[in-house]
Amino acid sequence: MKKIKFSAFLSTAIVCYLFWLVLTGQIVSIFTGGASLQILLAGALVSIIAALFSARFFIRSKAFYLANPVKFFIWIYYSVIVFMWELIKANIDVALRAFGFKKNKPGIVKVESDLKSDYGLAALANSITLTPGTITLDIAECDGKNYFYIHWIDVATADVKEAGDAIKGTMEKWIRRIWE
C-alpha cells in the first residue's frame, strides 16, 4: 500500500465521521441529548478504516484547505448567494427559450482561465456546467494557460475574451479567492 500523509488521513477521517453523524441522525441527538455511545464509537472505527483506504483519492494537495474560517465563509457566501443568483438568471433564460420566446444559437466556444490549481479548475468547470445554457466539454492546457471548451446555447460572440466574460461572470473572481 502506498504511504499516505497523516494530515490527509486525518481530514478524510473527520469528513467520514461527520457524514456518519449526519446519516445516522446522531448529530441532532448530540445537541438535544440522548446520543448513543455505541453508535458514536462504531462510527469512529469505521471512518478510520475507510480513511486508510480512501485518503489518497480524496486529498490531492492541501489537506485542510477549507479549515481556514475566512475561506469557509467565502465558500458558503459563494455557493448560497453569488452562485444561486447566476443560477436563477440562467434558469429563467433557458426556460424562456424552452417555451419559444427566444431563439437558440448553439455553438462551442473556447474560454481562457487563469486559475492554476486543480480544485479551482474543477470548481469553475462544475459551476459552468451546472448553470443552464452552458456545458463544459473539455479542459486543455496550452502554453501554461488553461482553456475551457464550452457548449453555449446562445453564442453572442466567438471571441475568447468576450465569451469568457459573458459565461464566467463574477464566478471566477470568487473561486480564485477560495481555492487559489
Partner: peptide, 14 residues
C-alpha cells in the same frame, strides 16, 4: 443532443 442537455439542467438545478 447538446441543447436538450441544456434544457435538462433546468430540471436538475432550480
Amino acid at each position: 443532443v447538446f441543447s436538450r442537455m441544456q434544457a435538462s439542467t433546468n430540471i436538475s438545478t432550480l
